[in-house]
């Protein structure tokens, strides 16, 4: 689906109760995809600064949010700040 169509469907407010539940699912999916991308980046050797830059947040914010959540077996040297 084209992004314009997504926004048209997503902007349908005729059933807000279902719509709000759907937003909760979307938020959970975003969280899931974001963590998967951060782990993939660390495995590729990207630094927390590179990850933060790509996400558009500060290095401290990215590190605080994900340092514990990512797979702890990813080599420590690659998780260096």
């Amino acid at each position: 689906m084209e992004s314009t169509q997504i926004t048209t469907v997503a902007a349908d407010t005729s059933d807000p109760r279902s719509g709000l539940r759907a937003i909760a699912s979307l938020r959970a999916l975003t969280e899931r995809l974001e963590l998967a991308q951060v782990e993939a980046a660390l495995r590729l050797g990207m630094s927390w600064q590179n990850i933060a830059d790509a996400l558009g947040v500060s290095r401290q914010a990215a590190h605080k949010k994900y340092a514990k959540k990512v797979d702890q077996t990813i080599p420590v040297a690659r998780r260096a700040h």
């Binding site: 937003i23 979307l26 899931r32």
Partner: peptide, 17 residues
């Protein structure tokens, strides 16, 4: 299925990872 249906209602039809 419930999450997929809710996402589909928003036009996200790609399925869950």
């Amino acid at each position: 299925e419930q999450h997929s249906a809710q996402l589909a209602s928003l036009g996200v039809n790609s399925g869950l990872p």
